[in-house]
Design a protein around this nucleic acid. Structure first.
Lengths: 332, 332
DNA sequence: TAATATTATGTAAGCGCTTTCATGTATAGC
DNA sequence: GCTATACATGAAAGCGCTTACATAATATTA
């Protein structure tokens, strides 16, 4: 691998001049630039990014922590973030936190030790205090899908409560009054917010919530499976169920059918997230759209703007969900 | 951030000794080691991985090129690869090739410029010749899901042909004789192999293949949608269809149902890949299991063994598919 | 044309480590 | 007690760049 030194010798200029044409940050006479470019070309020279990083104390890498790498939700997120940074010549290093406090902290430590210029965090288990402390730590970061007091400018969030509200409202508008709710783990902020939205919609229609209509799931298929069983067992008159995410909705749909119910005639189901498989389901799932890709891109833009000094406007931090009507909600 | 120099001063030893206890590769007297460890602890010292890389010309990063970052198939792959390397203290840099020759080459160049110690490539569009040339280029790599003559030891592949064979055999054994085939793009090696397996199974049963029973799709949902329409239009007597991947099977299922067919009574469908949403479908999809996660881990092990000198045995390069029986195939 | 202001280029000191080679020190052998 | 051997440590030269700062070349002004 040719080094900058060989290029400078071949071009008959100094190291510094070559560095200048590489970085294009200091004026260089056109004739000189051409000489250097030709020399680089002739030697097949590519700058060593490690050496650049060491000298400039900037790694051009951004660390991302997500709960899982697989799964449709994070796939979309990562894909869009990667594309955004790639265009800017940066690269992402990805780590999985598995919604576990220790693993999330480990991931963050790992990425910091990799000298990431910034982090994008989708973390669920670490405390707000930990994040506030992290803020003092030198490596800047953005938070996805979580609002932390005192750092609102770096939180890119979905209005989860409004999403929960919309889901239940949609059912209500379709005539349902006996509505079951399968929640995510209530210690997760988004699960709580969605449920709050549900309650608000109920209240608007003057319906009181009953504990027999609530089931706390796990945001995974199994939660939906168990949730439907529990809900139906507790109250056979339920005509609709809102699932706090699509994965649980998938489990719910399967189980409801196995119990002999026709969908959506006997039971309407609405999901949340609008992941890519939700329209492979039968009936195609009516759900709440979570613009996760767009939010990832926005987090990337925040980094590009604040860390890499790109002049970007319109950093949006709060996103709004909306109903995606498909076939799993029946009007009565 | 404390440097190795400050640690050495505090511990009263030289730089070199600190480096030795960090890397644990040269004997250091126990008393000295303890002193150093204590100093590191007191200063909250973490080695600067960039500087380590520059000095050792080893970045401890592995580049991965996949077609897409989203999608269930690559999600599983990436997740398992990341976990395997993370355990070894390495990190992965991920790039998307989008099954496009230019983008695949760009991705590889990008990762090489990032000084990756090795690459794991799931590339479809670049030629075998390009890969053979790449082999001379200095950065070692493993190839996933593709067999290239003259570098078989670094190819981790699925026996795709046998998979195609198994799919069709399963249908045949269930009494089907009029079987449609929705293929992936035939320029892709795996698509071709799967189809060859299909033909072989047919031949074994003395059934000749007809072009009206073949449709070349795109490995995406739309391919399945169009494929079913085309196949049913050309020959209404078809009782079963094999789809060369699950995504197309999802499209096929939806479309077949929209055309008024009962599944699986009127039409059996078998997929390929066993992606995570295949059992969310209705009927739950019978398919061929592609152990993509295990193959990714094996690729990682190859790298760990050959590049990082870990002593690992049992590097398996060819994986075997198997039938996953669910509900989408009907016996006649 | 000389004096001054601009702009382009070169010099050299790091960035924080690894690693070779040389040196020092403890242990064994006689 | 003296030499030979093994083992532990230190000194210093890079790894391939960036970036103050110094200097040389060119343009501007009177």
């Amino acid at each position: 691998m040719a080094t900058i030194y060989e290029v400078s010798k071949l071009a008959g200029v100094s190291l510094a001049t070559v560095s200048r044409v590489i970085n294009n940050n200091t004026p260089v006479r056109e004739a000189t630039r051409v000489k250097v470019l030709e020399a680089m070309d002739k030697l097949g020279y590519h700058p060593n990014s490690i050496a650049q990083s060491l000298a400039s104390s900037r790694s051009n890498s951004i660390g991302i922590v997500v709960s899982e790498l697989n799964g449709p939700f994070f796939g979309t997120l990562l894909s869009d973030i990667e594309a955004a940074f790639r265009r800017a010549g940066k690269h992402v290093i990805i780590a999985a936190g598995h919604s576990d406090e220790r693993l999330e902290k480990e991931s963050i430590a790992f990425l910091k030790s990799r000298n990431c210029d910034a982090l994008i965090l989708h973390v669920e288990a670490v405390s707000d205090d930990y994040l506030r402390q992290l803020k003092e730590g030198g490596t800047p970061f953005v938070i996805l899908n979580r609002f932390v007091e005192s750092m609102s400018d770096r939180c890119v969030t979905l209005n989860n409560q409004h999403g929960g509200y919309l889901a239940t409202q949609h059912l209500l508008r379709n005539g349902h009054r006996k509505i079951g709710y399968i929640s995510g783990p209530m210690w997760k902020n988004d699960a709580e917010q969605r449920y709050l939205g549900h309650l608000r919609a109920l209240a608007e229609y003057g319906i009181e919530s009953k504990s027999s209509l609530f089931y706390e799931g796990d945001f995974h298929e199994l939660g939906g499976v168990k949730g439907v069983a529990a809900l139906l067992h507790a109250d056979a008159d339920i005509t609709a169920i809102v699932c706090a995410n699509d994965e649980m909705a998938a489990g719910a749909v399967t189980t409801a059918r196995e119990q002999g119910l026709r969908l959506p005639e006997d039971l309407s189901i609405i999901g949340f997230d609008n992941v890519n498989f939700s329209h492979y389901m039968y009936p195609k799932l009516t759900t709440i759209d979570y613009p996760i890709g767009g939010m990832g891109v926005m987090a990337a833009r925040w980094v590009l703007k604040h860390i890499y000094q790109q002049k970007l406007d319109n950093i949006q931090t709060v996103f709004e969900p909306r109903v995606i009507e498909r076939d799993s909600v029946h009007s009565i």
